[in-house]
Write a protein that binds this DNA or RNA. Structure first.
Lengths: 112, 112
DNA sequence: GCAGTGTTGCCTTTTACCTGCAACAATCGT
DNA sequence: ACGATTGTTGCAGGTAAAAGGCAACACTGC
């Protein structure tokens, strides 16, 4: 567990930032960042969506990947769901194998 | 706009409830319910997830449909996304037509 | 031994979600 | 015509969860 925090820590170290260096860059206190990385938030296991956004930005991480790790739905996916809800209600009821197959099909179809 | 509130209103009328009758059944004040139906909440355009749940329950509505109308992602869909995130990231990038085709395919495959 | 780093407990602020009333207009049965 | 019921709206809050801040602590490592 806490795959999210560990990912943040890796990204931060890859940039050579300390907690105290990174914190002001993303607009929070360094102590809060420590808790984020260790999954020791007073509550929940991940920070706000907006902080995740700034972290992805500053650390050159994949924002959607980070959001998913944090148990949040990225806007790119949410938009699609609200655009074609019935499609996703159907897909949510498939078994894993079918869903994987369908995605393969889609990425193929999509290729120009 | 406010398709959600109108749906609630229809469901309520179908049951023959007045605002003052329904409100205590779902545990809120009648004035708040009126604002919900008219999309005139002090903030946001939809009530809490838990109120939506109780409304669906009391009015025999489709909870997931209501959640989607209210701009929220139902648990059934969210679970699937976190289970196979890459699949959904792919699907989010298809065009509408492809996505519709893929869903048709899936519902067919799924049919026993 | 102090300079930089990370950790932790407690505190405050903000946000989301409602409460509760009061006052008003529209409708409707009797 | 009358009261009763229904819905609308404004406002003035209240509460609990979510998000984050501060200060003191402990380790490292030259």
């Amino acid at each position: 567990m806490n795959v999210f925090g560990e990912r943040i820590r890796d990204l931060r170290r890859a940039k050579g930032y300390s907690l105290r260096t990174l914190a002001p860059m993303v607009g929070v206190g360094y102590s809060y960042l420590s808790k984020v990385e260790n999954g020791k938030l007073d509550f929940g296991d991940s920070p706000s969506e907006s902080l995740i956004h700034r972290l992805a930005d500053t650390l050159d991480g994949d924002e959607d990947e980070l959001l998913l790790m944090a148990g949040r739905i990225p806007e790119s996916i949410a938009r699609r769901i609200f655009d074609q809800p019935d499609v996703f209600r159907t897909l949510a009821n498939c078994d894993r194998a079918t869903l994987a197959a369908v995605a393969a099909q889609a990425s193929q179809t999509k290729r120009k």
